[in-house]
Amino acid sequence: MGILSRASYVVRSKLNALLNRAEDPTETLDYSYERMRDELQEVKQGIADLTTQKKRLEIQKRRLEENVDKHNEQAREAVRQDRDDLARRALEKKKEKMNQIEELEDQIADLQSTQDDLVEKKNELQRRIEEFRTKKETMKARYEAAEASTRVSEAMSGVGDEMGDVSRALERAEERTDEMEARAAAMDELQETGAFEDALSDQDEIDRQLETGRTSSEVDAELETLKAEMGESSGSDTASEPAATDIEAELDELREEEDEESA
């Protein structure tokens, strides 16, 4: 097989595969049915045309038969008038018309035979069309039922084109959601550990440790100062209790003196 032959074969194979995938059996059946109906219509039109031609010949035959009768009467009248010459001419025309009638009868017979054959073929074609229509509707119903069953099965199993797209969309959404949740958790963890603050700061690890040490020392010093202040405050409160007692005694003496003076 030559290169061109192989290429042609491959192209035809590809085209045939494409046509098979694109072909809808129900549309093909309907198209075939319509083509058969068109053919039946053409046969009917042919029968009608043939019948018209036959009717024209029959009309022409009747006219010739009328002429035959006319010439026959002419010949009789000529004989009664002793005009043999006219009688002979009339009989010659009669013979001529009769020959034409015979030819027309042969043609009419041929047309009638052809018409009978066409009518028989038309009836046979019409019968086949009716059978095809019944088979077509049955096949279409079976195909549509099988197609619906296949769609339902594919939808339930999730292997159909649309359901496959939906499943893939759900998978992508789930993956995206997991990714966003993981990213959010990572952000929270980095926020808690202070990684963001460290990233925005110019301090290195040593600076951070030193800062932590200074902060701890300052807290310890402040704590000691607070303890010392609280200790001194407690001692001052204990020492001031006798002084407060003396003041109260002096105030009582003053009140008594004022009462005596008022009396």
Rank of each mutant, 00 (worst) to 15 (best):
E256Q: 04
Q81R: 15
V119S: 08
E42W: 10
G158W: 13
K93I: 01
K44I: 02
N123K: 15
Q41C: 04
L18T: 04
G235E: 10
A22V: 02
E229R: 15
L86T: 04
Q112F: 04
S234N: 03
F132A: 14
L18Q: 10
E181N: 07
Q112D: 03
S240C: 03
D246Y: 11
I59M: 05
E103W: 07
E253M: 12
K55Q: 14
D207G: 09
T238M: 04
S236K: 10
I3H: 13
S157E: 14
Q81T: 03
L40I: 09
K140A: 07
K140G: 01
S240L: 13
R80L: 11
G213Q: 10
A155Q: 13
T51W: 03
R88K: 12
D204A: 02
L254V: 09
V79I: 13
A17L: 09
V43R: 15
E39A: 06
E232W: 09
L118G: 00
S13A: 05
E102Q: 15
E42V: 04
E73W: 09
E66K: 14
M187N: 05
Q60W: 08
I47W: 09
E130N: 13
L254A: 13
D84Q: 12
K121C: 01
A75I: 06
D38T: 06
Y143F: 10
E131M: 08
K44R: 15
A75N: 07
I59V: 05
E229H: 08
G46K: 13
R127I: 01
D82I: 04
E162N: 04
E179A: 11
S13Q: 14
G46F: 05
S8P: 01
V43I: 13
T26S: 06
K97Y: 09
E189K: 14
G231H: 13
K136S: 07
Q112Y: 04
Q126I: 01
